[in-house]
């Protein structure tokens, strides 16, 4: 009953550039409920201890383990082998700099993005340690939370044709981040204040609406709606000015 899985895995170690990038084959017997987290760790421990990949939470909350699984970006930890064919091709995410094998540098990319977008609450209000918190209605809190659920795994970036072709595009993760701050009443910025960064071809107008991000997001964030919200606000800002 149990299958033999044939893995074809992208290999490259920057420390040994004389060995060019290649696909390497591995075989593994499938066990019940096996995820790619379990499979890859077994491959590392039993067959090739130099195999590089990233996992942290292994529970689909940290966003470390996104990779191309049979061509599509996804979180390896929550991908069960029973949902995959016998042949499984694994490659690192495109767009992000390769660390080695299946491991890419999403951290530096997202830090740069968040600096670029100034992705923090802009407010002049001083914090009063003795005071009560500012009130907020619960639906607003939920709406912010919905956008804030992004785990910066990079799947949407890797799935985006524009991001693949144009390195300076901020992608769905960036635009969703913008949406999160636009709907947050605590952030005092007006749309025109983010226009310089977001209302451009590197920003929302670089998006050509292919919706691979929306189809692939492991957190199922409604990216189509979030992107459209930012697009409308930025278009309006371009007409209104300050």
């Amino acid at each position: 009953m149990s299958r033999f899985l044939n893995f074809s895995i992208f290999r490259y170690n920057p420390a040994t550039p004389e060995i060019p990038p290649r696909m390497q084959d591995f075989q593994l017997d499938e066990t019940p409920n096996m995820s790619l987290f379990i499979a890859l760790n077994r491959l590392r421990e039993e067959q090739d201890p130099s195999l590089m990949f990233d996992f942290v939470c292994r529970a689909a909350v940290c966003g470390s383990c996104a990779m191309l699984i049979n061509g599509r970006p996804g979180l390896a930890c929550k991908t069960l082998t029973q949902d995959l064919p016998d042949k499984i091709t694994l490659m690192p995410l495109p767009v992000f700099k390769l660390v080695g094998d299946l491991s890419v540098d999403t951290g530096v990319w997202f830090r740069g993005l968040n600096e670029n977008l100034e992705a923090w609450i802009h407010t002049d209000k001083p914090f009063d340690p003795q005071g009560l918190e500012d009130r907020m209605d619960n639906p607003t809190a939920h709406a912010i939370y919905d956008a804030e659920r992004c785990i910066e795994c990079g799947s949407c970036i890797a799935a985006c044709a524009t991001a693949n072709m144009r390195a300076d595009f901020i992608g769905a993760a960036g635009l969703n981040r913008v949406a999160r701050f636009l709907i947050d009443p605590r952030d005092e910025r007006q749309p025109y204040q983010v226009f310089e960064v977001v209302g451009t071809d590197e920003g929302v107008f670089g998006c050509i609406g292919l919706m691979a991000c929306d189809d692939i997001c492991p957190m199922e964030i409604p990216l189509q709606q979030q992107l459209a919200l930012v697009r409308r606000k930025m278009a309006l800002a371009s007409l209104k000015g300050k």
Partner: peptide, 18 residues
């Protein structure tokens, strides 16, 4: 309590009392 409220100021979307 100070810590919770400061995190609210920094952007945490705490669920709210209905």
């Amino acid at each position: 309590p100070v810590a919770v409220r400061q995190m609210a100021q920094w952007g945490v979307p705490w669920s709210r009392v209905v």
